[in-house]
């Protein structure tokens, strides 16, 4: 398993090729790609993602370990960017490898739900009118209950 918290962009195709490599006992890989979405007025100039250096890597690794154990995964990968990002940019990716697709899908959703409201990242949106911190959504918190 690998967790990377980074400023730089990544090549999701290359990451998935590397991830698949040598996994002859894997029957299913699920991947998710998170993108910077413009707001409804199309006024987003850029996003600034702040993180808690030290805690971020540790917190994500903890959830990845939980997912690997719970769904008997062969492997898992999380890449999450921070810093200045623009509409259309990739923010993050998750990939999970399992024997069967059910475990791969479930564990990828689990990781997504936990990254959303338990990984120490904070998004600031800069628009033409100024900036604001993105507020957490009640539904995101609620999503954790099903796990």
């Amino acid at each position: 398993m690998r967790v990377s918290v980074q400023l730089d962009d990544f090549d999701i195709g290359q990451e998935l090729d590397l991830f698949r490599n040598g996994k002859s006992n894997t029957g299913a890989i699920v991947s998710f790609q998170g993108i910077v979405r413009n707001n409804s007025e199309n006024s987003l100039l850029n996003m600034d993602i702040e993180q808690y250096p030290g805690m971020t890597q540790k917190a994500i690794s903890k959830y990845v370990t939980t997912a690997v154990e719970r769904w008997s995964l062969n492997d898992a990968l999380v890449i999450h960017r921070h810093g200045k990002l623009f509409p259309g940019d990739q923010i993050m990716m998750v990939a999970t490898a399992a024997i069967h697709r059910h475990d791969a899908f479930q564990s990828a959703e689990f990781l997504m739900d936990y990254l959303k409201s338990r990984a120490p990242f904070w998004k600031k949106e800069i628009t033409k009118k100024g900036y604001h911190w993105v507020e957490s959504v009640f539904d995101d918190e609620k999503a954790l209950e099903r796990w």
Partner: peptide
């Protein structure tokens, strides 16, 4: 000790 608003990752 760290204080912060609810996280907004993903």
């Amino acid at each position: 000790v760290a204080f912060f608003p609810p996280m907004t990752g993903g």
